[in-house]
Every structure is written in C-alpha cells, then in structure tokens.
Simulated scan of single mutants.
Amino acid sequence: MASSEDKPAVKEDENAGSWKDSIFNPRTGEFCGRTAKSWGLILLFYLVFYAFLAGMFVLTIWVMLMTLDDYVPRYRDRVPDPGLVIRPMELDMMFNRSQPLQYADYIKTLETFLQQYNETEQELNKVCTAGDYFDQEGEVGVEKLTCQFKRSVLSRCSGLSDTTYGYAEGKPCILLKMNRIIGLKPEGDPYVNCTAKKHSGIHMQYFPSGGRFDKMYFPYYGNKLHKRYVQPLVAVQLQLGKEDFNTELTIECRIEGSNLRNNDERDKFLGRVTFRVTVKE
C-alpha cells in the first residue's frame, strides 16, 4: 500500500505531463493545439491573404503613378499665386551700424545667397528679350534655357561695390524674391512697393530701377526641366537718416501692378511680406 508521501509526486508528474501536452501531444500529433494539416491550412490562408493585400497595394501605387507627370504636379490649385520672401531670412532685424559683428551674419547670408547670381554662373545662361515671356516649346523632357540675372543689376545692393550691403552706413539692403510656381505668367507689369508703417517719411531705393520683376523670367518649368533657373530679385535699400536710428521700423512690401494676389488675410506672405528693422548707432 502506497504511503501518503507518494501522492504529491504523482500529482506533480500529472501537471508536468499536462503542460507538455499543451505544447506537443504525442498521442494526437498536435503542436500548440493544432495538427500539421491544420497548421498548413491556416498558413496557406494567411499567405494567400497577405499576397492579395500586397498585390492590391502595388496595383494602387501603379495606377497612381500612371496619373502623375514627371515634370508638372497634377494638382496646383492650392498655390495659384506666389509668396514674397526676403533675404536675409530675418523678419526682425536689429543691429548697431558701428559694430560690424552685429550685422556680420546678415552680410554672410546675402553673400552666400548671391553666389548663384555671379557673373561666371550667369554667363552660362541665355540673354533674353526684356518685357516678353520666355515661352519654350520642344520635346518632352528637354532641359529648358534660363535667362541671365546678374547680381550687378542690384547696383549698390549687389555686394560688389559695397561689401557691407549698406549695413555699415545704417542703410541696409533687403533682397526680395517670389516663390517659384510652375507655369506662372503674371499679367501686367509686376513690381515691388515697400512702405514703412507709421513712418511715412522714409525714402527707399529699388534695384533694378522701379523694383520690377521682368516677364522674361516667366514661366518657370519646374526643377527637373529648369535646373539652372534662378528667380529674379528686387533689392530695396532703406535710406535711413539719423532721425530714423534707434527706432523700430515696420516695413511692408507688396507685389503691385499685376493680377497676383497681395491682400489675402489668411496668408500674410501671399504676394507680400512684413518685417521689422531697428538700426542703432
């Protein structure tokens, strides 16, 4: 007759056997509760299911790519008009004209930006007829020509005759350009007009003369076709006097003289830009 001490050992053996059977049952040949046939069927199902999903994904991408153009975005309704941006890329500029280190970063930004407008770079581009759109037709995929825009056109704001761009005199130069929009052909004669809010007596000088964006730089054909394209620039130099120093000046520049929008209250940079300048002495 077995003693009471043997009973716990038997119970432990039964528990161990039950746990092992849940992984692999040698009597039924089940692994994790399924036979080899059951595992084969469920794996086949998931294989077919995920292969179908992958096929649908690839087909959807292929159909989408077939509707796209390699050179022109299909939908451009959200950007019908260009924004206006400035260089240096500072909407709140403050510096002491007698301390070069305070405006050194502004000068560096302008000089770096204007490298693409150097004589050596622009000589590779085409001399175009001013006042006319530069429409270019030809085979699909052929690279488009670019009209020359030399930095010397910016005169005293070119950095060639005055390497400080007027900052040392307290007459800073600000460069303005429109954002690129493929196919844009502005009507009229677009030009930049800047005004100083609450300081109507401030004189401003524009380069090129009149602050105009010539039509010959339009249309733009996109980065793939117009690889050498650079936007036309307008420089405005603030002709500040001693009475204007140590005062925060709010300047607003707008694109005028064309059908380009410049009064959308939902987008403060659409056809216009506002920035502040404080020159100390």
Rank of each mutant, 00 (worst) to 15 (best):
A2T: 13
A2Q: 14
S3M: 09
D6W: 04
D6T: 09
K7F: 14
A9G: 13
E12V: 13
N15D: 14
W19L: 15
F24K: 13
F24W: 13
E30Y: 10
E30A: 06
T35S: 14
K37Y: 04
K37N: 14
G40T: 14
G40V: 01
L41F: 12
Y46N: 07
Y50E: 15
Y50Q: 10
G55C: 05
V58F: 08
V58P: 00
T60L: 05
L65A: 13
Y71S: 06
V72L: 03
P80D: 08
P80Y: 04
P82E: 02
G83H: 10
G83F: 05
G83K: 07
M89V: 15
E90F: 09
M93D: 01
F95S: 02
N96D: 15
A104W: 06
Y106W: 08
I107H: 08
T109F: 04
L110Y: 03
F113A: 15
L114V: 10
Q116K: 15
Q116H: 14
Y117C: 12
E123C: 10
N125M: 04
N125R: 12
K126G: 03
V127D: 14
C128G: 00
A130I: 05
Y133H: 04
D135S: 02
V142P: 08
K144A: 10
K144M: 09
T146C: 05
V153H: 12
S155N: 12
C157R: 02
G159L: 03
G159W: 00
L160R: 09
S161A: 11
D162S: 00
G166M: 08
Y167D: 04
Y167T: 02
G170H: 02
I174R: 01
L175D: 10
I181E: 01
K185E: 12
E187D: 12
E187M: 10
G188H: 06
D189C: 00
D189V: 05
P190W: 12
Y191K: 07
T195K: 07
T195P: 01
K198F: 07
K198E: 14
K198V: 04
I202C: 02
H203L: 12
G211D: 08
G211R: 00
Y217M: 14
P219E: 14
Y220N: 11
Y221G: 02
R228W: 09
Y229T: 07
Y229Q: 11
V230R: 13
L233Q: 08
V236Y: 06
F245K: 09
L249R: 08
L249K: 01
S258C: 08
L260A: 00
R261L: 10
R261T: 13
D264P: 05
D267F: 09
G271K: 05
T274F: 04
